[in-house]
Amino acid sequence: MAIQLKQQKKGVTQLAIQGELTIYSVLEHKQALSQYLSSAKDIQIDLADVTEIDSAGLQLLMFLKQEAVSRDISFSLSQHSEAVVEVLELLNLSKHFGDPIVISADWKSS
């Protein structure tokens, strides 16, 4: 399972997605993440270890955001990895998610 539950307390659920977030894994990810949507009040997802993200993966993030908003769950992404930032920048979606992005100095580009 590429989703790790880091911490769960006082309604705050901290999750970390690891490895690929692509068409090959979205189904699995969605099932895993959906359960938290029904219970948690505050979901924080750590994207630091996302090595690869494609349109399907991005769409899943947008879906989670949409679901969270409609259920009044506070939802944030953090620790965006280089791959995630590149895609968010490309599609001009950083504002859509509204989370602060920290760009590391080691990254080659973007």
Binding site: I23, L27, H29, K30, Q59, F63, Q66, N92, L93, H96
Partner: peptide, 17 residues
Amino acid sequence: ILTVASEMPVDDDMDPE
């Protein structure tokens, strides 16, 4: 660039693939 997913269904109806 504007990315929209206005037709994305909610909840279980959404097929991530």
